[in-house]
């Protein structure tokens, strides 16, 4: 007990920078950043998630150097070979190297995730904040529309859009994005409603700031952290949905090495050649898990109250 008591001042000294009152904006920012990084790094699972995501990015960037074979090179004499020192994850029904296809598939996954996120994020954020800030009729119409979207399970709605747009990678991305923005808009709207009536917004308005300036200068930055958390957690489900579409044959088309489509193609040979479906499935799972872990850790840092 007394040992613990004597430890306290020692610990205080070590984090003195964090305990002292910030004297400048930069210092305050640095303090918050440090506390955030500290919180994040103390969450082992989140760090693992981030590492896997970084690894995924590296694999996608250096795919040609990492892959051992041409991912689309068919070699029927080598078809359906089990994992070996030449083909680490075995070969598929056309004799293509599964490891190399998984490596190149990381590019497809990253492409989908990135594209969906950069469309859904800004659209949801702007629609939500504008709707929440102005209220009234605009708000009512927007909320009715989001209600409608949220009345469906995501995958069913995405499937409907794909049915309209036709199968394909770009169409899948568009369909997922179309389904995804209302959730973000809802979140941003809810945040805006609570910020809207606060004193500093009133102060900004009294100083003559335009609505546009208030939305972009004061409201959006505050909404940002919870939106980022939601987007990150959403990335995992984007990956799963895209894989599901690929699996149903409505997403990326052959010969694109998309993991879901690879699983689907491997189904027919599954009973004799288990490796065809195992490797791409594990890849989807690991990456999606990584985004979930990362998002969880990010939430603890950026949005601790929602925990």
């Amino acid at each position: 007990m007394s040992a613990q008591a004597s430890e306290v001042p020692a610990k205080r000294k070590k984090v003195a920078f964090l305990d002292r009152e910030a004297t400048s904006v930069t210092e305050a920012f640095l303090q918050r950043l440090l506390v955030g990084v500290h919180t994040f790094l103390s969450n082992g699972l989140a760090v693992a998630g981030l590492s896997i995501i970084l690894l995924l990015i590296a694999v996608a960037a250096f795919a040609p150097w990492i892959a051992t074979h041409d991912p689309n090179l068919q070699n029927l004499s080598m078809a359906l070979k089990p994992p070996s020192s030449v083909n680490w994850f075995g070969t598929d029904e056309y004799g293509r190297d599964i490891f190399s296809r998984i490596v190149y598939g990381s590019r497809v996954t990253l492409y989908i995730v990135t594209l969906v996120t950069i469309t859904v994020g800004p659209i949801g954020l702007i629609v939500g904040t504008v709707s929440g800030y102005y209220g009234g009729t605009v708000d009512m119409i927007v909320m009715r529309i989001t209600d409608l979207f949220l009345a469906f399970p995501g995958l069913i709605l995405t499937l409907t859009f794909v049915a309209i747009l036709g199968p394909g990678l770009e169409q899948a991305v568009l369909a997922i994005a179309l389904t995804g923005w209302p959730a973000i808009a809802r979140l941003a709207r809810a945040e805006t409603m609570t910020i809207r009536s606060s004193d500093y917004i009133a102060a900004a308005r009294l100083q003559g700031a335009s609505s546009l300036r208030i939305i972009f200068g004061s409201i959006i930055p505050v909404c940002m952290s919870s939106v980022i958390v939601r987007l990150t957690l959403g990335m995992a489900s984007v990956i799963l949905t895209a894989a599901g579409l690929g699996f149903l044959g409505l997403g990326a088309q052959p010969p694109t090495p998309e993991w879901g489509a690879m699983t689907s193609a491997g189904r027919e040979y599954m009973l004799d050649s288990w490796w065809l479906v195992t490797a791409p499935g594990v890849a989807i799972m690991v990456v999606s898990l990584a985004f979930n872990l990362f998002g969880d850790g990010l939430r603890d840092v950026l949005d601790p109250k929602s925990k």
Partner: peptide, 11 residues
Amino acid sequence: LRVAFQMQRGV
């Protein structure tokens, strides 16, 4: 009687 709370940073 002593009661201490384990906080994130120290006791």
